[in-house]
Design a protein around this nucleic acid. Structure first.
Lengths: 259, 259
DNA sequence: CTCCCTTTGCGTGGATCGCGCAATATGTGC
DNA sequence: GCACATATTGCGCGATCCACGCAAAGGGAG
């Protein structure tokens, strides 16, 4: 049995999933409902959680894990990855850009013909925050993929997005993912994301995957997007030799940013 | 005594301040605790609020600036027009929303089931600033029309947007324009805008035009979008009798906000 | 005016909460 | 090892709150 305050962190972990009821918690931790109630009472007094009738929820539901927050979070690695990926581009490339903050950081680096002036990229993306950044930038023709808005990631997806994308092709697809495993590909939370991401890779002549080293070799989600025979992985200097070897085995040309 | 659902918006207003208890609400509205409980039960089933022991709190604490702030920020005429237009909606309407700041003000007013909770609007729009405002709002299903981004107005248009829209229909189209002249319709700067706007009106069962009185009877641009046989004009109290008569002559039902 | 629907208030049964008390487990000093 | 102080836990009790059913009052349509 978990005793005393040692139970509080576990309690919070259980609360992350959403609302939980007292009885369920009591059974899971092998204690009485009174004890759970006392724990919740204390956490509620600290404004950590909020009691409901028969249960409790997180008081501050990780305030939207907002995109600015995410960008500030792993900024150095992502910025290095973005810079390295921009170096892979050719002039006048037509690019299709995936959702996610890593790709958004990359896209923001394209402003002002970054690196070499005279570039005239065409951008096709479902990355809504990126649209606000790139709109009106000189030398960039911006096309948005329509569809249903997924609030958490601020990207579009669904049949409408795929139907639009089928009418377009690109020189390079720049995508990210929640994880990567050789033989499976990229993993995502939802099948809709995978479907659109796969189509992006199909419609582009080359595929560039931006992924920091913490995600390599990890299967954090259950929906998988297979990778093409040849692709390019841009990751950070923290990638281990084994991680790079796994990617190369899966057909990747590996670029380690900042190394 | 405030009767029926007319109490829900006031209830939400009271909830904005934080947590409130049932007894307090019952006393404030002059009804029994049972009635308050029923109201809260309904709002909770719509995920608008969350019940606590003896009270309730807002479920999604408006991550953006609050609605009154936005309305105060917008020009008074636009805010009044937006409020009046929201009053024209039915529950569960599917809405297609045009670009432009007037329509964006209207759209922002839909947050939190403004007016009457329980609404479950589906929103189809090419209005990119509005997407950032509405994303994740409870009770709203958001679909973006893809296409080329027009930086000046932050809206999408072009063949991709029209092809997407052809697959969708709506109960009401809410559009704006740079000007209006009876017999011609709405005028815009570019033919691409007109093309998409016309399609929006064709795909919707009803057409609502939001336009402040300064634009009525003025031909400021050269591209024209014809209006359907019957439509609704929502304008501000500054509209003259002649302006309203011109609109009615063109088949409009005229709503003057704030009059 | 009548009929029908909605909304409201109240009572009842069930569930939850908070608190006090006693028993047990944990930690500490000698 | 032993005794004592403290913390944690389980249980019972009264009080509060919630959900449901029922009857009455208010509005709208024909």
């Amino acid at each position: 049995m978990t005793r005393g305050r040692h139970r509080h962190p576990l309690l919070l972990e259980a609360l992350q999933a959403g609302e939980v009821v007292v009885e369920e918690l009591a059974e899971r931790f092998g204690v009485s409902a009174s004890t759970i109630r006392r724990d919740l009472q204390q956490l509620a007094s600290e404004k950590t959680i909020r009691r409901t009738y028969g249960g409790a929820v997180i008081a501050h539901p990780l305030p939207e894990t907002s995109l600015p927050e995410r960008e500030a979070q792993a900024r150095p690695e992502k910025a290095a990855i973005a810079r390295a990926a921009i170096g892979l581009l050719s002039d006048d490339d037509i690019l299709v850009l995936d959702g996610g903050s890593t790709v958004a950081t990359f896209g923001a680096g394209l402003i002002g013909g970054a690196g070499r002036p005279g570039r005239r990229h065409a951008i096709i993306t479902n990355n809504l925050p990126l649209v606000g950044v790139l709109a009106g930038a000189p030398g960039l023709a911006l096309t948005v993929l329509g569809g249903a808005v997924r609030p958490g990631s601020m990207s579009t997806m669904g049949p409408l997005a795929e139907a639009s994308l089928r009418r377009l092709t690109a020189d390079k697809a720049v995508v990210s993912g929640d994880g990567f495993v050789a033989g499976r590909g990229l993993c995502e939370a939802a099948i809709e994301q995978v479907s659109l991401k796969s189509l992006m890779m199909e419609q582009a002549a080359e595929v560039v995957v931006l992924m920091d080293s913490s995600k390599l070799g990890r299967a954090t989600q259950g929906a998988w997007a297979p990778l093409p025979r040849r692709w390019t992985l841009v990751t950070d200097a923290g990638a281990t030799q084994a991680q790079c070897a796994e990617a190369e085995e899966a057909g990747a040309r590996v670029v380690r940013a900042g190394s």
